[in-house]
């Protein structure tokens, strides 16, 4: 049985770009441990020679014709942006 520690949860949360408090980490650790333990059921099955399924339909790569089409209008693109200036999206400092 996998044990999920508070530290592991904080690490996973960081990878997923989620800020969580220590208290939340403890709570999620218990729940995620219960969930991953339930998932261990799959280990009963021998899948050594089974191919993985990523997609249920028999499809090959779907490509479109290589021709240019106009992009979206800039005003439309900025419609849902909270802060923008001179047609550009504003974000907090990237380099300090």
């Amino acid at each position: 049985m996998a044990k999920m520690t508070k530290e592991e949860v904080i690490e996973v949360a960081h990878l997923a770009r989620l800020a969580i408090t220590d208290e939340e980490a403890v709570h999620f650790a218990d729940q995620l441990e219960a969930i991953t333990n339930a998932m261990e059921l799959l280990n009963e099955l021998d899948t050594e020679n089974v191919e993985p399924t990523t997609h249920v339909l028999q499809m090959v790569n779907v490509l479109r014709e290589d021709k240019s089409v106009p992009g979206l209008d800039r005003e439309l693109v900025l419609k849902n942006v909270k802060e923008h200036e001179a047609g550009q999206v504003k974000v907090p400092t990237i380099l300090e």
Binding site: R17, L18, A19, I35, V91
Partner: peptide
């Protein structure tokens, strides 16, 4: 900074079940 921006936006924006599944 940008990292805090991402992390806080997502923590404040997502509910618990969504966070649980993202972490799983």
């Amino acid at each position: 900074n940008l990292l805090e921006f991402y992390m806080n936006t997502r923590s404040e924006g997502f509910g618990d079940e969504v966070k649980r599944r993202i972490m799983l």
